[in-house]
C-alpha cells in the first residue's frame, strides 16, 4: 500500500508546506533513506547497535510519535502508521550515540515533516538516527547534533 502526500496528511491531520508535491505517490522503501537531519537504517545493516530483549515497545498511534523537533522548537519529524502496523522503542544501545529509536513495522509506516514531506517505510525493523556535526566550539573535537 502506498499513498500520496495528500492522502497521508488527510489521514493523520498533520500538515506540510503547500509547495510540496501533493499528488505524487510516496515511495515505500525497505532500505536506507534520509529525511533532513534524520536517517532510517535497516537494523540488519548495522553491527554497532543492540536492542535489549527487555526493551518496551509501544504501538505507533495513528496520531503519530513525534521523533525530533527542529531547532528552536521548529518542525517535528512525526512517525505515523495504521493501528497495529508498527511499534516503537527508544530503548536502544547505539555505540554512535545517535539513535532516536527503533521501528518495527508489519505494514508500511510513514515519516512526515512539514518541509521534507513524507518517507514511506516498508515492513521491517529500522533504527532512526540523528545527524551529527563536528563541533564548532573551542577545541573542535566534540560532536554535536544537527537540528534543521
Amino acid at each position: 500500500m502506498s499513498m500520496t502526500l495528500e492522502e497521508l496528511t488527510d489521514r493523520t491531520g498533520l500538515t506540510v508546506l503547500d509547495h510540496l508535491e501533493q499528488q505524487v505517490r510516496i515511495p515505500v522503501v525497505d532500505g536506507l533513506q534520509a529525511q533532513g537531519d534524520l536517517i532510517v537504517i535497516p537494523l540488519a545493516v548495522l553491527d554497532d547497535v543492540d536492542v535489549p530483549a527487555r526493551a518496551r515497545w509501544r504501538p505507533v498511534p495513528p496520531s503519530g510519535v513525534e521523533l525530533l523537533r527542529g531547532a528552536a522548537g521548529g518542525n517535528p519529524h512525526t512517525l505515523v502508521a495504521e493501528p497495529g502496523a508498527a511499534e516503537w522503542t527508544t530503548e536502544v544501545h547505539d555505540r554512535q550515540r545517535l539513535a532516536v529509536g527503533v521501528l518495527r513495522a508489519t505494514r508500511p509506516a510513514y515519516l512526515i515533516h512539514s518541509e521534507h514531506g513524507g518517507s514511506g517505510i516498508a515492513p521491517g525493523t529500522y533504527l532512526v538516527r540523528r545527524q551529527r556535526e563536528r563541533s564548532t566550539q573551542r577545541g573542535g573535537q566534540a560532536d554535536f547534533l544537527v537540528a534543521d
Binding site: 515511495p27 533513506q33 534520509a34 533532513g36 545493516v45 545517535l98 545527524q131 556535526e133
Partner: peptide
C-alpha cells in the same frame, strides 16, 4: 560519518527528502 555510518553503508542510501 554524519549519521554514524561508513561510506559503503551510506552509498546504499535510496532516497533523501
Amino acid at each position: 560519518w554524519s549519521y554514524g555510518l561508513s561510506g559503503e553503508q551510506y552509498a546504499r542510501l535510496l532516497r533523501r527528502t
